[in-house]
């Protein structure tokens, strides 16, 4: 036999312990996922309403002249990437996939700066290109709060307004379903009128809004609010993805524990039976020798 019975028994016990932990983590993640998903869905209407409204307004001349719509290709300004990952591991390939997407982005835009949300992404790039990281928000621990989102939004907006960067993009998790998520890259700044997802039907008959107190004032107030809400929603979605990834990873780990436990138990039983058989043979042959 490959291993002694005692060693096998020890391993089985340790795997049972591991299984208890992964099972518990799976259930905790499932509960957190439900809450995060609710928060994400509840936060959607605000951003969606602003998006529809901006879609209707974006074609007006005042909007087109607004600095946040300004495309700055000719100035050769660096890009800025908001990179959203999780603070903790044990969530399968979630962070690795995001890091891959970010690497791809950096190949496209070699001079890009980074703003990292989440410890995993921050540590990934701090080892490789620390000089590019211009800011970070760590240890949010999947708790949503408006202030953090506003802080990040205001930082990005200030960099763009100061002409320190020419464009801002976001790479974060996109929640497809409880069992699927993938990295998503989205343009943040400058704003694009077509990105507001206005249906053709609506575009055909624009609504002639009164803008109070003035068109400029409406855009100055509306655009930053919209941009902050986009960050808030991106964080909400990323947290939802993190919990669903962890739930799946822990589910797989629990299954592996089961399989490993079964095969080790089988091995142990074989070893035990072999030992008993050997003993019997010894006794029988001993008795036969005496009679002989």
């Amino acid at each position: 036999m490959a291993k002694g019975i005692k060693e096998l028994r020890l391993r089985i016990r340790s795997i049972k312990g591991t299984k208890k932990i992964t099972r518990a983590m799976e259930m905790v993640s499932a509960a957190k996922l439900r809450r995060a998903q609710q928060e994400m869905n509840a936060a959607r209407p605000f951003t969606r309403k602003l998006q529809v409204l901006l879609g209707r307004l974006a074609l007006s001349p005042t909007a087109q002249e607004h600095p946040l719509f300004e495309v700055r290709t000719e100035e050769k300004l660096p890009a800025l990437l908001l990179f959203v990952t999780s603070d903790r591991g044990l969530c399968g390939g979630f962070n690795a996939n995001l890091a891959k997407a970010a690497e791809r982005y950096l190949r496209d835009k070699p001079d890009a700066q980074l703003y990292c949300v989440g410890r995993k992404g921050y540590e990934y790039f701090r080892k490789r290109i620390p000089e590019r990281i211009v800011g970070h928000s760590l240890d949010l621990n999947t708790k949503l709060d408006g202030e953090t989102a506003d802080g990040i939004g205001n930082f990005l907006l200030a960099r763009f307004n100061d002409r320190a960067v020419g464009e801002v993009d976001i790479i974060s998790g996109e929640f497809v379903s409880a069992s699927t998520n993938r990295p998503r890259r989205q343009r943040y700044l400058p704003l694009e009128a077509k990105a507001f997802g206005l249906s053709d039907e609506e575009a055909a008959k624009p609504i002639d809004y009164l803008l109070e107190p003035s068109p400029e004032r409406v855009f100055d107030a509306l655009l930053p609010t919209y941009l902050r809400s986009v960050i808030y929603l991106a964080l909400a979605e990323s947290f939802t993805c993190e919990h669903s990834s962890r739930m799946l990873a822990m589910n797989a780990a629990t299954k592996n524990c089961d399989e490993l436990g079964d095969s080790l138990t089988l091995q142990m039983n074989k070893a035990r039976q072999a030992a008993i058989t050997t003993e019997i043979i010894e006794i029988v042959s001993g008795a036969a020798a005496l009679e002989g």
Partner: peptide, 19 residues
């Protein structure tokens, strides 16, 4: 509370966006 003072809205108001 509009930026330039309180205002009222009734049904069939003209399309408006107000800060």
């Amino acid at each position: 509370p509009g930026e330039s003072g309180y205002f009222g809205v009734l049904a069939n108001h003209a399309p408006i966006v107000s800060v």
